[in-house]
Structure formats: C-alpha cells, structure tokens
C-alpha cells in the first residue's frame, strides 16, 4: 500500500496538511496543541528537551522544535495553526515565521505583502461598486 498522490502535491513551496502529513505529525501536533494552556507553555520554556520527551517525537522533530526551526517542523508534519501556538508565545509573528520559511528578513516579507496593494484602487474602480473609505 502507498499514500495517494494529489493534484496539490505539485504546488511549489506548499505543504498541504492531509492525512499523510497529519499521521506523520500527530505526536508533534499533540505537543503543540498542549500550548493552548499557559502552564504547558511555561513548562516547555523551562526545559524544552524534557517537555519534548513526554510526547514521543522523532529525533528530527525534537531537534527542529528545540531550535525553532519552523520550516523543519512544517516538513516533519506540523500543522501551521498548531505551529503558531509555539511561535506566537515565543515572540515570533506570523510574518517572522513566513520570512523564516523563505529565508528572508521579516522586513522584506512585510514589504512584499504591502506591495500587494500597489494598484488596488485602480482594480476596485474598474470593477465598480466598492466602498472607498
């Protein structure tokens, strides 16, 4: 038996969170899910390695977790929404994480987002009916 292939497998730079990924990342995501609780976040901050050992992670997952290696964690099965429960309390923004995925500075990542608005007014006017505040 093998995992089914999907159309979305070929989208570059994209890790669709499906059954195959969720299965491989289950223990890791369970750890990340525990960060909904402040006491778990504190316990992890106090001794990351000991905390990781409670969740039966693979060696690679544990290493990526302790090193805040977001791209590594993603490739090892972390779901992005669960990954945010690690990143945000540790002081990273979603843009910091995005920049880390791309290996660029957060400032540049933000500038790329801002550039999306470059010709917005013209586009909205062309279609018509938009509120302009």
């Amino acid at each position: 038996m093998s995992w089914k292939k999907h159309d979305y497998d070929d989208i570059p730079g994209t890790y669709v969170f499906d059954g195959e990924t969720s299965h491989s990342g289950y223990a890791l995501n369970k750890l990340l899910f525990s960060f909904n609780h402040e006491e778990s976040r504190q316990e992890f901050a106090g001794d990351p390695s000991a905390y990781a050992d409670k969740f039966a992670l693979s060696d690679a997952q544990k290493k990526a977790l302790i090193e805040d290696d977001f791209l590594g964690l993603l490739r090892l099965g972390a779901n992005i929404y669960f990954l945010a429960k690690l990143a945000v309390p540790r002081g990273f923004t979603i843009q910091d994480a995005g920049a880390a995925f791309q290996g660029i500075e957060t400032e540049d990542f933000r500038a790329n987002l801002t550039a999306k608005a470059d010709d917005l007014e013209a586009k909205l006017e062309k279609i018509g009916g938009y509120w302009h505040g």
Binding site: T14, L74, G98, F101, F109, L113, K116, K123
Partner: peptide, 13 residues
Amino acid sequence: QLQGERAGHIDVD
C-alpha cells in the same frame, strides 16, 4: 498562505 516557502502568497485578482 501562512506556510511553506510560498508563505505570503496573495492573489488580489
């Protein structure tokens, strides 16, 4: 798109 090397993707059109 929040994740992967394609993070930051937005398609206004």
